[in-house]
Amino acid sequence: MHVLFVADPLASFKIHKDTTFAMMRELQRRGHTVAACEPSDVSWRSGGHVSARVQDIRLTGAHEPWFEVTGQRNVALKDFDAVLMRKDPPFDSEFFYATHWLSQAEREGARVFNSPQALRDHPEKLALLEFAEFAPPTLVTRCADDIRAFHAEHGDIILKPLDGMGGMGIYRVREDGLNLGSIIETLNQDGSNSVMVQRYQPAIAQGDKRILLIGGEPAPYCLARIPQGTEVRGNLAAGGKGVAQPLSESDWAIARAIAPRLAARGLLLVGLDVIGDKVTEINVTSPTCFQEIQQQTGFDVPAMFVDALEAALA
């Protein structure tokens, strides 16, 4: 099997924790071959196929350099056995355009994971709207007065932009409402940007759990990302401490309710963010935490993923 990864620049990978690297390593271990490109390398020309300038690579097993380029070529995406879209958020206009190229590649015969249509239909924050029964009280709006009313109702709230990642732009406003007006102005830009507002979940002290759904099944361990010091964000990129742990009874119930519905839409890999027993986000663009879970528990998450990929292609 020959697999193309559409991803961020290979030189930017932090291989001690990178999930895309872990996928590549497991694929190569099984005898599959790997190629990589960036979204900017993908193009389409009338009369032809969606193609990309790709690098065929081999993982060296060393830390540096961790890969070597064995060939470079321009190739139609349909000529790969699988195309894995692993570009990190944000879900901006260029990411959106890339999903349209990938949809055209599917029409030409390519097998793309996650499904580009499903990526468009499930933007990181707004995918939660469909699963409101599992979410904390949540408001998505451009209206500053609605945000103030939500704060008056719930007292302690979290505000975040819809296009953020890694904890970027997340604010907590307590009962005193300190700086609420300034935060609203910063996030919604005089009503031009939508904002997600959620009731603060005290269970964040025990971690913001990343639960992985792979091929419609939950991985049995999650990564609880625990805020450190005075920080309210558990995101690893914001300094949170990652602690792997077995899924709780409520985690299993949430995961088993959501996983089959998303898998049926072509979402091979999903990352649920759960605080306590509430889902706060549904991540589909480039979910992570494979290596942290495997290193701490011994459960082989990359193997579970490649098993699911092979089964999807069978």
Results as ranks from 00 to 15, higher is better:
N283I: 09
V274P: 06
Q291G: 08
L267R: 06
K278C: 13
V284Q: 04
Q291F: 06
L267V: 06
T280W: 04
S286T: 06
T280H: 02
A308L: 05
V270A: 11
L272T: 10
I282Q: 03
I282F: 05
M304R: 14
T288Y: 03
G276L: 02
M304N: 09
M304V: 12
E281N: 08
E281I: 11
V301K: 01
T285R: 09
G298A: 09
E281Q: 12
I282D: 02
E292C: 12
F299T: 14
G276M: 11
D273V: 03
D307K: 01
Q296K: 11
L272G: 00
D273Q: 11
S286N: 11
I293K: 04
E310M: 15
D307I: 04
G266T: 10
L268S: 11
Q291C: 09
S286W: 03
E310K: 11
G271W: 04
E281F: 08
K278F: 11
I275D: 03
Q296V: 10
T285C: 13
G271R: 03
E310N: 13
P287W: 02
T280I: 12
L309V: 13
G266H: 01
V274G: 01
V279H: 08
D300W: 10
I282L: 12
V284G: 06
T288Q: 01
V279M: 13
C289W: 01
T285I: 12
V284T: 15
E281D: 13
N283H: 08
Q296L: 11
T297S: 15
F305A: 12
Q295C: 09
V279Q: 07
I282P: 00
F290V: 10
Q291Y: 05
V270F: 07
T280F: 01
E292F: 05
V284H: 11
G276D: 10
A303H: 11
Q291S: 13
N283Q: 09
T288N: 11
F290C: 08
I275R: 05
Q295L: 15
F299W: 15
L268G: 07
S286P: 07
Q291D: 10
L272V: 12
T297I: 13
T285E: 04
K278R: 15
L272D: 10
V306G: 01
C289H: 03
G266D: 07
V270E: 07
P302G: 10
I293E: 00
L269W: 00
